[in-house]
Design a protein around this nucleic acid. Sequence first.
DNA 1: ATGCTATCGCTACTCCAGTCGCGTTAAGCA
DNA 2: TGCTTAACGCGACTGGAGTAGCGATAGCAT
Lengths: 217, 217
Amino acid sequence: MDHPGPTTRIPDEPPRSARPQPGGPVRRPGGRSAEVRRRVLAAVRTHLVEHGYDALSVDAVADRSGVHRTTVYRRWRDVGGLLADVLAEATSDDWRPPDTGTLAGDLVAVNREVHAALTADPPVTTALIAASFRSAPAADALRTFWIDRYDRCAVIVARGVARGETPARTDPRRLLVAATAPLYHELLLLRTPADPHLADRAARDAATAARAGAFTD
Amino acid sequence: MDHPGPTTRIPDEPPRSARPQPGGPVRRPGGRSAEVRRRVLAAVRTHLVEHGYDALSVDAVADRSGVHRTTVYRRWRDVGGLLADVLAEATSDDWRPPDTGTLAGDLVAVNREVHAALTADPPVTTALIAASFRSAPAADALRTFWIDRYDRCAVIVARGVARGETPARTDPRRLLVAATAPLYHELLLLRTPADPHLADRAARDAATAARAGAFTD
DNA sequence: ATGCTATCGCTACTCCAGTCGCGTTAAGCA
DNA sequence: TGCTTAACGCGACTGGAGTAGCGATAGCAT
């Protein structure tokens, strides 16, 4: 599943105030509004890397980005809104689930992406999930994202059915949740130290279950 | 797994200030300290029922319990500490995992308890989990609780092995996490509406997986 | 009954999250 | 080029989370 992961690049922070250029006005693609957004989101990512989620605040982001705190409150409402926007910026509309040729392979690939997102630096995904318990914008963004991603991944199960790897009546979402839920549970709720085999094991356990007829009524 | 559930009884809130009784001093079993604790924890539960987790605060609990806010901060540190103590009060040292005669039956029984806890009123468990992202006392209490409960449930898997329902090499914790994680994932992270069949399905899916040799390396 | 200690209550304080009103400025359009 | 509007900056404000110091009181031991 597509989450912001370690390959998400942090763009350089632009200068605090753009200086007039020789020969013409300062160029601001997307207008002042877009530049404000770029600076603010860059500040969120940098602050997360350096200080973690607990230290993330609207004031901290405003100070680092040079955008006034009132503007940040006005546009993003709270820390959760900031994180939701960082996620929105980082995720790709054209993301597609992996296609490795086997159900287990696809689930392993998805779980590796989820694992990478949950252990990434900056910890955007874990921060957004934590924020979702306190912030409506964060909860909304997360729900929307997950609905979309679980929908897109249904094709993994359809391929499995087509290959005869799993019964035709397999509930796709139920299987996908079974594959991914242990990662979220272990890393976010139980807070167990990251186990490099966790993602693959959970995926393979789910594939074994599917083959055996689980996830069907 | 033992969570405070709908059967947890809310004791009546004692009067704000105990009045001298005819013929002798006010009786305070456990001393003033114990009475303060009873009143504070009762206030936490009542406030959760009436206003939910978002409205829970140290000041609200102090007002409702008649215990000074400084005392509440001093003893419980934050809202998470309050919720951790409510959990401690409600959980039973002698809880044992269910023993229904089958692996699937045991997992279903555990999952029903987890489901009851996650959908209970007052929502102590969900509140504590939400608070654990912000409060060290809450995170510590939850971790300790879960380590204990997953350990105690290992016997469910041992019985399954003894009955020949699952291979001898089955990893107990991995199976238990696979059975319970979808409930937490759906109800707390994905926030999907409570599905009466969720608990049973997740449990049976895990039992099917175990029978098929999942959760072994 | 008295003294000591742990616990609690009280008030004032700091700091931070969040908001408001108003002026400034960027940007688009006629 | 000028006007209008949207977005931003600024400073002041409110309310709530959290803390500190000190006095009062409950409870226990002598």
